[in-house]
Design a protein around this nucleic acid. Structure first.
Length: 640
DNA sequence: GTAGGGTTAG
């Protein structure tokens, strides 16, 4: 008997000699053949290797319970090689595992990220249960194969297997990944039929799916219908608003839920910080920062990335850089957030230097966003030649990131900015992508600054063809004609616009003073202090006119007389917000105004005169970038 | 046994 055991033991040792398993200790067998209880005892002592050894020794005797126990342990420890050995042991010994064990194998392989092996076991299953289906679906979903996950879900339904809450929660994620809103809605009706709409996991996934497809009302409906809320469902709805750019709604909901006792974690704060970045609500942002510091949350790098972004979008690059410098670990997003910050502030030199540092440190691989930030940073920061060099590097394939359409768009911007309008036009015609409206828009802007009507007209024609409803395009063309003194053409543009255009998004500007956001719309008659604000605008106008300001009437395309046009211009929301800032802050203090769209030529000029005449530093953050105006000179170089 | 929310760009 003992010899038999020794023989088997040495055989087993040979079998396992290729693994990392070390045999410092001989397993103690209480009986022969050993039973699953022995295995469990070994496993509970953490002796997975010994358990495997015993399994090999006893051969066929192990069967169901032993395999189950060991595989479970392999899953818990993510012990890939050991689990694979268990699986091959089954095959070698011609053991045919029941559904339960096959499911265990599928789960083992999916958890160990061996999708191919998982799929093989799954495909060979004679009958599949809901757990196996869900495990394989979520494995595909989590690894980014959303369409395949949806395919499998359809197969599951056809096979007659009934999805449970786990399945629904998982498959909804695939709908987001595969951009299939119609499937999401069909699945929603299945969920309702299964009475799982109020399930906390299913509900959060469902509301997140709606939010990701821009159906925020549906998302909110699902959220309000949840019988209980937790940190995930609350975060999902807040981030839903934030991701849609509904920043005020996101902030408002966050504050309400906080009052109602919501718990927050790092994901919640990261989502709220996105909204605060959009609003440039730096006082609120600092409060969150304090919370974060006090609570010592895990996954700090994600939060730090959000904080870098928040501070830079609130105009405080110094804070951003301080956080960046103090990070113990940086991801590519950390670098990107910092580079984007410099880029939006027109700090070309800093962009190039930081990118150099990124390469020197050689810890993080730059990605497509990195190059987008670098190219647009070079463009906005007066480093056009460096920008073109980086782009050439991308084209040559030296840095491993191939240029995409957005990078080409940056190059159009760079060429246009440096006055190479013809070159930019040729570049667009020859690039391997269909030009976008944004590209033509950027080139039309270049034509305006560099007074190139010939190309401007061609570009405008294509642009208006592509986006006949976008009033901004007509304004650019009108500006171009006006700058050449072609008033007849300005009138024609207006008529053309009257036929087709609608104002897509109303202009809105805001300013944060003493932790309060004050928002203004064009010709705002609703603000409680409107009289004061309008009076201040008039006062500013008188003073800056004396200093040489003349309104740029080509920014107004309404069919009205000149006096009316000037009135409309004075009602632009950024002027109101700027005036309000001047009223409510002491002389000499910098003022920062945010705008949801691109700033108009006249308002830009207005702000420059105000900064000069009143000796104020004025910062304007528009849709694309910051304008830092000191003494009448803007950091954008009058090109944006 | 299987499941939900997050940070950079556009």
């Amino acid at each position: 008997m003992l010899r038999k055991l020794n023989y088997r033991f040495s055989q087993a040792k040979r079998k396992f000699s290729s693994t990392t398993v070390s045999f410092t200790r001989q397993p103690t067998l209480s009986s022969f053949p050993p039973n699953p209880t022995d295995l469990k005892a070994l496993l509970s002592n953490g002796q997975l290797e010994d358990a495997l050894l015993e399994m090999a020794i006893q051969g066929l005797e192990i069967k169901f319970e032993g395999y189950d126990t060991i595989l479970n342990e392999c899953v818990n420890r993510r012990a890939i090689r050991e689990g694979q050995r268990v699986h091959s042991h089954m095959i070698k010994t011609h053991y045919h595992p029941p559904v339960y064990l096959r499911t265990r194998l599928v789960v083992f392989y999916t958890k160990c990220e061996c999708l191919g092996d998982a799929r093989k076991v799954f495909d060979e299953m004679p009958d599949r249960n809901v757990v196996a289906w869900t495990a394989i679906i979520s494995a595909y979903s989590q690894r980014g194969y959303a369409s395949e996950a949806l395919n499998l879900f359809r197969q599951m339904l056809r096979s007659g297997s009934e999805p449970n809450a786990f399945t629904f929660a998982s498959v909804l994620t695939s709908c987001k990944g595969a951009l299939r809103v119609e499937y999401g809605m069909q699945i929603h009706s299945l969920i309702v039929k299964s009475m799982l709409e109020s399930h906390i996991y299913v509900g959060s996934s469902l509301l997140d799916m709606y939010a990701k497809f821009g159906k925020i009302h549906e998302a909110r409906g699902v959220f309000e219908g949840l019988p209980e809320r937790d940190v995930v469902s609350c975060t999902a709805i807040i981030s839903g608003y934030a991701q849609m750019g509904l920043d005020e709604e996101a902030l408002e909901l966050f504050r309400r839920l906080q009052r109602e006792g919501m718990t927050c974690n790092y994901v919640t704060y990261a989502s709220v910080l996105t909204a605060l970045s959009g609003l440039a609500a730096v006082d609120h942002g600092k409060q969150i920062h304090n919370h974060v510091l006090r609570s010592e949350l895990p996954f700090y790098v994600v939060l730090q990335n959000s904080l870098i972004d928040m501070y830079s979008k609130c105009g405080n690059l110094t804070y951003s850089r301080r956080i960046f410098d103090n990070m113990s670990e940086r991801t590519v997003m950390s670098w990107n957030a910092m580079l984007v910050g410099y880029s939006k502030h027109g700090k070309g030199r800093e962009v190039v230097e930081l990118f150099k540092l990124l390469r020197e440190q050689n810890k993080v691989k730059p990605d497509t966003v990195t190059f987008l930030a670098v190219l647009s940073g070079c463009s906005h920061g007066g480093m056009e030649d460096r920008g073109l060099e980086f782009f050439d590097e991308m084209v040559s394939g030296k840095n491993g990131v191939k240029p995409e359409i957005e990078h080409y768009s940056c190059v159009v911007d760079i060429l246009g900015r440096s006055g190479k309008v013809e070159e930019a036009f040729e570049f667009i015609k020859q690039m391997p992508f269909e030009p976008t409206a944004a590209m033509w828009g950027s080139l039309l802007g270049a034509c305006r600054v560099h007074l190139n009507v010939d190309i401007g007209e061609l570009v405008a024609e294509r642009l208006i063809e592509m986006e006949p409803e976008n009033s901004g395009n007509y304004v650019l063309l009108s500006n171009l004609y006006a700058s050449m003194g072609r008033w007849e053409d300005v009138r024609n543009v207006r008529e053309l616009m009257n036929e087709k255009a609608v104002i897509k998004e109303p202009g809105r500007s805001w300013i944060e003073l003493n932790q309060t956001l004050h928002t203004f719309h064009a010709s705002d008659r609703t603000h409680p202090r409107k009289e004061e604000v309008f009076a201040k605008v008039k006062e500013l106008l008188v003073k800056i006119k004396q200093a040489g300001y003349t309104p740029d009437l080509s920014c107004v395309l309404h069919d009205v007389d000149e006096e009316q046009k000037e009135k409309i211009l004075l009602g632009h929301s950024e002027k109101l917000a700027l005036a309000f800032g001047l009223i409510d802050t002491p002389p000499g203090k910098p003022v920062q105004v945010m705008k949801n769209l691109r700033i108009c030529v006249d308002c830009h000029n207005f702000a420059k005169f105000v900064s000069k005449v009143y000796g104020r530093e004025v910062s304007l953050r528009d849709k694309n970038r910051f304008h830092h105006i000191i003494g009448g000179i803007c950091s954008c170089g009058d090109y944006w």
